[in-house]
């Protein structure tokens, strides 16, 4: 599949806007998880602005594809995508983490239009994705369920229980993406609890496994295309990413797993993301 430069450029611009929103949200809330939101941004932008079938003006549309943010702490990235897609006004993003907000610290499917699953306790989203994919099979719906996993989350046993069952039920309508940013809260994944060889583990569990650069839109789109053509088994895309991608001092910095930027850092981040004095 050839992707036009125009499409790639559109997605890059969408992703840039999403990154700006993420920084704004976390700065305004004075808390949140920038690192893992920024590493997942390009993958989510590709899904929300090109790959998935969905209707922001009809969030419960039966034939929509599903997206489960298993790494729920990347909620800012999800909310920014949903707002940009039109599920709710961008203005709402200012209420992130505030009392009475529809935008909880971690995704709440009962409060936020477009959120498909309540997540936040690591390790549970893939099981929910298996349930959604099974339901689609039962209903003979040609929908795809996408589950975004953190790499730290792959420490959880439940992920592998779910991986085993997806394979057993031959869920070719289920696609998992591992945001392989190589850092978890306490430090590098390979120093805290090694998950390598990660691709071999997924293959051993019966999955069709791909490895891509999670910031290269051609590779991201190509992988989703590849997944859609794979029959009889689930696909996992191990997306190599950079934690904090797009903001120099957050890139590869464990410190920004769950910390908000201060005023100076916020200004620096906006500058790096190409935000002018007009705020765009």
């Amino acid at each position: 599949m050839v992707y036009t430069e125009q499409l790639i450029e559109q997605l890059r611009e969408r992703a840039r806007t999403v990154r700006v929103r993420i920084i704004e949200m976390i700065f305004t809330a004075k808390s949140g998880h920038p690192g893992g939101s920024l590493s997942a941004t390009d993958i989510m932008a590709a899904l929300y602005f090109h790959v998935m079938k969905h209707k922001p003006d009809d969030p419960k549309w039966e034939d929509r594809d599903r997206f489960v943010l298993s790494k729920g702490h990347a909620a800012p990235a999800l909310y920014a995508c949903l707002a940009e897609a039109g599920y709710f006004p961008v203005e709402e993003l200012k209420t992130f983490r505030k009392l009475g907000s529809m935008l909880q610290g971690h995704p709440d499917m009962r409060k936020t239009p477009g959120v498909e699953a309540s997540t936040g306790s690591e390790g549970q989203g893939l099981s929910m994705g298996v349930g959604m994919a099974l339901a689609a099979k039962l209903d003979r719906k040609l929908t795809t369920t996408y589950v975004l996993l953190g790499d730290g989350e792959c420490d959880c046993g439940q992920i592998w229980e779910a991986a085993m069952s997806a394979s057993f039920f031959k869920l070719d309508n289920l696609v998992a993406i591992v945001d392989r940013n190589k850092l978890q809260l306490d430090g590098p994944t390979e120093q805290i609890m090694s998950i390598e060889p990660l691709i071999d583990k997924w293959k051993a569990f019966g999955w069709h496994a791909l490895e891509i650069d999670g910031h290269d839109f051609k590779e991201i789109l190509g992988a989703f295309e590849n997944a859609s053509q794979t029959k009889g088994r689930s696909t996992v895309i191990i997306a190599h990413t950079l934690k904090g991608k797009g903001v120099s001092f957050m890139e590869g910095a464990v410190a920004f797993h769950g910390k908000a930027p201060n005023k100076e850092q916020h200004a620096q981040a906006m500058k790096e993301l190409g935000v002018g004095a007009d705020g765009k």
Partner: peptide, 26 residues
């Protein structure tokens, strides 16, 4: 048989799958 799924000795996964099915209207 098409509406019964044996998840094996993996109760955590079973509860998550249950939630996913319910989220899809089951």
């Amino acid at each position: 048989p098409e509406r019964h799924f044996n998840i094996g000795i993996a109760e955590q996964n079973m509860m998550g799958i249950a939630a996913g099915l319910a989220a899809s209207g089951k």
